[in-house]
Design a protein around this nucleic acid. Structure first.
Length: 131
RNA sequence: UUGACAGCCUAGAGAACCGCCUUGGGCGUUUACGCUUGGGGAGGAACUUCCGGACUUCACAGGGAAACGCGCCAACCGAAAGGUUGGGACGUAUGGGGUAAAAGCCAUACGGACGGAAAGUGCCACAGAAAACAAACCGCCUUCGGGCAAGGGUGAAAAGGUGCGGUAAGAGCGCACCGCGCACAAGGCAACGCGUGCGGCAGGGCAAACCCCGCGGGGAGCAAGGCCAAAUAUGUCCAUACGUGUCCCGCGUCAGAGACAGAGUAGGCCGCUUAGAGUAAUGGUUCUCACAGGCAGCAAUGCCUGACAGAAUCUGGGGUAUGGGCUGUCAUUAUA
RNA sequence: GCGCUCGUAGUUCAAUGGAUAGAGCGUCAGCCUCCGAAGCUGGAAAUGUGGGUUCGACUCCCGCCGAGCGCA
């Protein structure tokens, strides 16, 4: 049951964390979404996640919608991601991410290309086929 | 039935599971945190940032002025910005009336930043003789000295308009009607003005050009502002260590492992909210029903979609975007 | 969030309220050349949008739309 929760401790909210992950971490780019990731020094068991949404993406409604969908996708798949990593996602195209399923597949596709997706091969083929 | 305008209402409902923010109680617990149980959790425009106000801070004896903003009148609402209603003048359109043809006049509808052009300055391209000083290109008349501004044409705008008289030709030169100005003035709280008299006529437009008049009017804005405060640097004190010395006091030196100080960065807190501050919650999946729109269909019905838009100190307005419903007025169509 | 500035050809900039909105680079066509480059000649191409003031608006006024900047 804790696997589906998404408490505050799993989010990034310090400016310095964002800076270090984006500046020093590795970068993977997919259609409409960018991922930076870096092993976090302190959080041993947690995967921390943050979002960077530019104002150029759209209006406040569009930005909120994309953020919620990406947060929901991260929440549902948190257990399958490698722990001890700080993730920062940045959407670049709101039209590709306009449903929960497409947001989830985009996120999992990026994580698989980054080699951060744990086991669950069969789940991959079912829901997270990269385009 | 459809459309336009005006006003008002509303912003899908219910359920299950997985989650988020905030807060009260209980339990574990030193806090952090975790578990459990209740409460609350986007809008009519939260958008825009176009005007107000509260609040904070800086400046300021008092007064005047400037920048800037506003501008027909009255009543009402309001703290103010602003709004509502009614009225007036003006403009446009339609109709009536009028005329040789027009205009003035009347009615209806619509419009709006609607003080002042007779305080002063400035501008008015091209065309045109001439664009605000009045003059005269063609022209008209002539006793050849000169007189005239009717006609032509330009322009957005040309020194009142029409008619009659008059004259060498003409002209408000004279008269009538209209226009205009001034004075008085029925009426009206007022803006305004029925009307009367006088004047042959002053004189174009632009003030969303400078400006004048009247009224308002200090600046910046919660990222305001205030409080706490690591690290580092600085200063003061002090024990210890070392040097001097036989030892203590004293004096000097370096380091700090210490204490304090004010300033103040990272960071935190207050400001701050019966939503409330932080990468910033208000979500995801599924089912049922309702409403609206689109597509297909003769129809029953089926499928798809769910307007504009997301709080960040609070609050009053203006503007703009937009799904649905109701009422009223006007126009239109159909039926009776 | 609060405040400020700016929108002219594809781009960089001009234009007292006045005639057909101008110039450089770019682009297109032609000439030149064996073919190109350079050069020469010619053309296309714009006032963000909707109203208002004015005889007349890129210019003045108002509302939208779109960019950019500052403030801890």
């Amino acid at each position: 049951m804790t696997s589906q929760g998404f408490p505050r401790s799993c989010r990034l909210h310090l400016k310095n964390d964002f800076k270090s992950i984006i500046h020093d971490g590795k970068r993977v780019q997919g259609p409409g979404l960018v991922l930076w990731w870096k092993p976090a020094p302190l959080g041993k068991n947690d995967r921390k996640m943050g979002l960077v949404v530019s104002r150029k993406l759209g209006s406040a409604v569009v930005r909120n919608r994309v953020k919620r969908l990406l947060r929901e996708a991260f929440r549902l798949n948190r257990e399958r991601l490698q722990s001890g990593i700080g993730y920062v996602f940045s959407p670049r195209n709101s039209e590709i991410l306009d449903t929960a399923a497409s947001a989830e597949s985009a996120m999992l596709g990026l994580c698989e290309r980054a080699g951060l997706l744990m086991k669950a091969r069969e789940m991959d083929e079912k829901s997270a086929v990269p385009k």
